[in-house]
Nucleic acid binder design. Structure first.
Lengths: 129, 129
DNA sequence: ACTAACCTTTACGTTAACGAGAAGGTTAAG
DNA sequence: CTTAACCTTCTCGTTAACGTAAAGGTTAGT
């Protein structure tokens, strides 16, 4: 069990952020002692890291709320599995479309790089005459 | 030459957004007539679309401002090419790290999908006894 | 020349995702 | 048993990226 500061440090966020996530229903402490101290487990750390990653690639906390559970399914509940698969596939498409946007960008950048480098070598050969 | 509404429509943004981008120095009209009307060319449309894409994969307008020019280099200026290549490579790394985050997410999702589907088929075979 | 459908600037409003105190209680090591 | 380093709940502030009128000028088709 870790206190909030420990989790925050490991996940690279502030304690404020963790409480805010909790408020949004994204991550919750495993236990809250009578005096109000939050105690987390490793799972909360993983979730927090994943939230950060998804956020970093352009998802809002609101969108993340809809999908974060899909990453950390307990293998117990046997109901409504079909729905789960549906959500997973939707999310997969979302991810894939972002990937292809980024890959397009990457191609363009690489093209610009080689174009520019060609230009530079032409300039250098002129200088070396 | 297109008026602002036309560009907005094509790019899938509002006119407000275009003026806001202009204010940030991201896209400018080709010409502004004496009465204040903005007239754009196709290049502005391309830029706007690219901005939207980059924004969609998690870059802020501030970050975009630093790189958007790299996508639309005029092949004229022959100075400072080395710097340009440097910036391009930095941006490329940025893109690549986002891609790998997304690919990790994708793998996890796919794993969850197959896990869940396995579970479902087990359940179905039980039912069919 | 009329009018719908554009365009302009100015300015206040909104949402998301926290940051930054204030005021005070808790823990853990020496 | 003291004290530094934690933790708590407020509450107000901030930045980004626009939205949304308000009040008025312009264009283009009939």
């Amino acid at each position: 069990m870790y206190k909030i500061g420990e989790i925050a440090k490991q996940a690279g966020v502030t304690t404020r952020t963790l409480r805010y996530y909790e408020q949004l229903g994204l991550v919750s402490p495993d236990e809250i002692t009578p005096n109000g101290y939050r105690y987390y487990n490793d799972r909360a750390l993983d979730i927090t890291k994943r939230i950060k990653n998804l956020q970093h690639v352009g998802l809002s906390l609101d969108e993340i709320k809809d999908v974060i559970g899909l990453y950390f399914q307990q293998k117990k509940e046997l109901e409504a599995k079909e729905k789960t698969v549906g959500y997973l596939q939707l999310h997969l498409e979302q991810i894939n479309s972002k990937i292809s946007l980024l890959e397009k960008a990457r191609e363009e950048i690489q093209e610009q790089i080689s174009l520019t480098q060609e230009l530079m070598s032409k300039l250098k050969s002129k200088k070396n005459v």
